Simulated scan of single mutants.
Amino acid sequence: MKKSRIILAIIVFGLSCYSLTTKNFEMMPYLMFFLAIFMLVTGLAELQKDRKSFWGYMSIIVFLFALFVSIQGFLLN
């Protein structure tokens, strides 16, 4: 889980830096998709630690919202 979180964080950071430096926002649905997967992995990691905390559930809710936004971005472009 830790390696996948690091890899996803690097992908999200790289895509966001690319979008900001080139002012090309066509990659935004991909950025939102990878951010959604990152939030899902983070939420599942929190829930696996047997800490049924607020942040584990909140990460999964943010995953659902970001996934919805990325799907809309794919369909509208």
Score class of each variant (00 low, 15 high):
residue 8 L to A: 15
residue 58 M to Q: 05
residue 39 M to P: 00
residue 15 L to C: 03
residue 58 M to I: 06
residue 14 G to R: 07
residue 22 T to R: 10
residue 60 I to E: 10
residue 6 I to Q: 11
residue 58 M to P: 00
residue 70 S to Q: 03
residue 38 F to R: 11
residue 61 I to A: 13
residue 40 L to E: 13
residue 75 L to S: 01
residue 24 N to Q: 15
residue 42 T to C: 01
residue 36 A to V: 04
residue 1 M to G: 12
residue 44 L to M: 03
residue 62 V to G: 02
residue 46 E to W: 11
residue 74 F to I: 06
residue 72 Q to M: 10
residue 58 M to G: 08
residue 8 L to G: 14
residue 76 L to S: 07
residue 50 D to I: 03
residue 12 V to G: 03
residue 19 S to A: 14
residue 18 Y to K: 12
residue 62 V to A: 03
residue 14 G to V: 04
residue 49 K to S: 07
residue 37 I to V: 14
residue 41 V to A: 11
residue 32 M to P: 04
residue 21 T to W: 15
residue 4 S to M: 05
residue 49 K to V: 01
residue 29 P to Q: 10
residue 66 A to N: 12
residue 10 I to H: 00
residue 41 V to S: 11
residue 5 R to D: 12
residue 26 E to I: 13
residue 60 I to F: 08
residue 62 V to T: 09
residue 68 F to Y: 12
residue 66 A to G: 07
residue 1 M to W: 01
residue 71 I to S: 03
residue 19 S to M: 15
residue 7 I to M: 12
residue 57 Y to C: 04
residue 41 V to F: 08
residue 33 F to R: 08
residue 21 T to A: 11
residue 61 I to C: 08
residue 3 K to P: 11
residue 11 I to P: 02
residue 63 F to M: 07
residue 11 I to F: 01
residue 6 I to G: 11
residue 72 Q to W: 09
residue 26 E to W: 13
residue 49 K to A: 03
residue 23 K to N: 15
residue 24 N to C: 06
residue 30 Y to G: 15
residue 16 S to C: 06
residue 16 S to T: 05
residue 70 S to G: 02
residue 20 L to N: 14
residue 36 A to P: 08
residue 28 M to S: 12
residue 47 L to W: 03
residue 74 F to Q: 05
residue 23 K to E: 15
residue 31 L to I: 12
residue 77 N to M: 10
residue 10 I to T: 06
residue 59 S to V: 09
residue 39 M to H: 09
residue 37 I to Q: 02
residue 75 L to Y: 06
residue 43 G to D: 00
residue 60 I to C: 13
residue 34 F to P: 06
residue 60 I to W: 11
residue 65 F to D: 12
residue 35 L to W: 11
residue 18 Y to F: 14
residue 71 I to H: 00
residue 8 L to M: 08
residue 67 L to P: 10
residue 44 L to V: 05
residue 25 F to I: 14
residue 26 E to Y: 15
residue 33 F to Y: 14
residue 13 F to M: 12
residue 26 E to P: 02
residue 53 S to W: 06
residue 36 A to E: 01
residue 35 L to C: 13
residue 17 C to V: 06
residue 4 S to R: 02
residue 2 K to F: 15
residue 52 K to Y: 13
residue 42 T to Y: 13
residue 17 C to G: 01
residue 4 S to G: 08
residue 43 G to L: 02
residue 9 A to K: 00
residue 6 I to F: 12
residue 54 F to S: 02
residue 18 Y to S: 08
residue 62 V to H: 03
residue 2 K to W: 13
residue 34 F to T: 08
residue 60 I to Y: 06
residue 64 L to H: 10
residue 3 K to H: 09
residue 77 N to K: 09
residue 64 L to P: 09
